[in-house]
């Protein structure tokens, strides 16, 4: 485990790299500061921290959603696959394979499960044939969604909605998925199931994940690396195992003893 005061060296093979990012909402509300982190290829990286620590803000800064919430990145740069994407729009990022799954799922309630999935692929303008192939691929990962495909997403269970949200992201053929609180409001058994799928996607499809979670125990079991956040700053980072066995987490959640 190391402290964050040291500068991260730009790693040539990192799929995502944040360099000293600072975000302010509505011109005055400070959200995150001095955030530097990176995600390697085919890695699961966890962002841990209590409510309001800035996990979601970091993910939205990466995915280009900050301006939609009246915020702005006032300092720092974000690199995705070696390119500066600090000012990129969500549509540009999605078409390059960087997709965010929002906190609280955000399914399109009045659309059917299948229509929800389809929206994820539109940005690439695939042919009808490619589109149905992608759909089959997602149904292979989530067989339950195939049974529900004609149902309105709004009437499916929380776990199923999380599957729809992840499946929708997969339709963009992503390389990196930003996953915000996948465990929120779900039964432990369903959480386990969701994380197993994430693990499987990492192993078989070579996807990378940047994962914001309050449920540190589960996240650290699946993650390779972890960053711990406290009121908008990174206080610790290190291998998932190191973080799990250290005092860092309880310090950040409960305050220093």
């Amino acid at each position: 485990m190391s402290q964050t005061s040291e500068k991260l060296n730009p790693a040539a093979d990192a799929i995502l790299q944040l360099d000293n990012i600072e975000v302010i909402y509505e011109k005055v509300i400070f959200a995150i500061k001095h955030i530097s982190l990176q995600v390697g290829p085919q890695a699961i990286v966890a962002l841990l921290g209590a409510n309001g620590a800035g996990k979601s803000t970091i993910l939205k800064a990466i995915s280009g959603l900050i301006p939609a919430q009246r915020g702005e990145i006032v300092q720092g740069r974000i690199f995705y696959q070696g390119l500066d994407v600090t000012q990129a729009t969500p549509a540009q990022l999605v078409s390059q394979g960087l997709v965010q799954v929002l906190e609280g799922r955000h399914c399109f309630g009045h659309l059917t499960v299948e229509e929800n999935l389809l929206t994820g692929a539109f940005v690439r303008r695939p042919s009808a044939k490619v589109l149905s192939q992608e759909l089959e691929k997602v149904y292979n990962f989530f067989p339950r969604l195939k049974l529900l495909r004609k149902n309105h997403a709004g009437y499916t269970s929380g776990g199923e909605q999380q599957m729809v949200a992840i499946g929708r992201a997969l339709m963009a053929n992503p390389k990196l998925i930003l996953l915000d609180e996948p465990s929120m409001g779900l039964a432990p058994q369903i959480v386990e199931e969701i994380f197993e799928i994430v693990h499987q996607l990492q192993q078989t499809q070579g996807l990378s994940f940047l994962l914001a979670e309050q449920n540190a125990t589960v996240a650290l079991r699946y993650a390779d690396y972890a960053y711990v956040l406290e009121s908008g700053h990174i206080t610790h980072h290190g291998d998932a195992q190191t973080i799990a066995s250290s005092q860092a987490l309880s310090d950040s959640y409960l305050g220093k003893q």
Binding site: L65, A68, V94, C107, F108, L111, E115, T119, F122, V123
Partner: peptide, 23 residues
């Protein structure tokens, strides 16, 4: 059509529509 599905998606949830890359 895809435009129609996108439109209904935007009507449901603008932020999510942005997040999946709808312009």
């Amino acid at each position: 059509t895809r435009i129609g599905i996108s439109l209904r998606a935007v009507a449901d949830d603008q932020l999510a529509a942005l997040a999946v890359g709808i312009k």
